[in-house]
């Protein structure tokens, strides 16, 4: 957009139309726009949580949470995702200081933790389906697979995004555009960790004690 502006003669003044504090984020309106996207994504998850809440005791004579949820595995998964959120936070100051190596290292660690999370979740899903506790068994299990699966799909997209950033930082260095992209990815990743707080408390822990 700015390229077009500078092509026009005498238009250099338009470079200054942004507020000075917008430069802090390396993205200006992008950060606010991405924030709005995250909020809309939160609404999607809210509707999935609401659906799960409504049918969470509709077992149709099938398995109940206490029988099928493996809490040590859920605890491990929670630890992996929380750790990945913290390691992503380690990457950010390195990125702001322009250190390419440590930024990529911490991003790669975050990606590995996220991949382990998705791997364990897929193992859990396949285990449940093999036990006959698949999504078609009861309304409870349909809602469970939809909610947790949607979260897992988001994390998978986040992994693709991390891999893309690792490659692009290698190609372009930490330019303003790259910082903006990693900034948005950081918000996306922390957001998914927040959704997981709802999942492990309301779905797994509450499911086991009710």
């Amino acid at each position: 957009m700015t390229d077009h502006v500078t092509d026009a003669p005498g238009a250099a003044i338009t470079w200054h139309h942004l507020d000075p504090d917008d430069h802090d984020h390396g993205g200006g309106a992008t950060v606010l726009g991405f924030w709005i996207y995250l909020m809309s994504d939160a609404l999607i998850f809210a509707s999935l949580f609401a659906m799960f809440g409504v049918v969470s005791t509709s077992y149709a004579g099938g398995p109940v949470p206490r029988q099928i949820f493996d809490l040590p595995l859920v605890a491990l998964n929670t630890a992996l995702l929380l750790a990945s959120s913290i390691t992503f936070g380690q990457a950010m100051p390195h990125m702001e200081a322009g250190r390419i190596g440590p930024t990529r290292l911490w991003l790669a660690v975050t990606g590995l933790l996220g991949a382990a999370f998705v791997g364990i979740e897929l193992y859990e899903f396949s285990h449940l389906i093999a036990e006959g506790a698949g999504p078609q068994r009861s309304a409870f299990l349909s809602a469970f697979f939809t909610l947790v699966g949607t979260h897992g799909a988001h994390v998978t997209v986040g992994l693709i995004w991390i891999a893309t950033m690792l490659i692009q930082i290698g190609q372009h260095g930490l330019t303003g555009e790259m910082r903006r992209r990693v900034m948005c990815l950081s918000m996306f990743w922390h957001f998914l960790d927040i959704i997981w707080i709802g999942v492990f408390n309301f779905v797994y822990l509450y499911g086991v004690i009710r």
Binding site: S85, D193, I194, N201, F202, L205, Y206, R210
Partner: peptide, 20 residues
Amino acid sequence: AAIIFALALVQIVVHVVSFL
């Protein structure tokens, strides 16, 4: 249940403030 729900709400606020 009441305690874990309350802790979840606190944790969500902590994440939103300190991570986001």
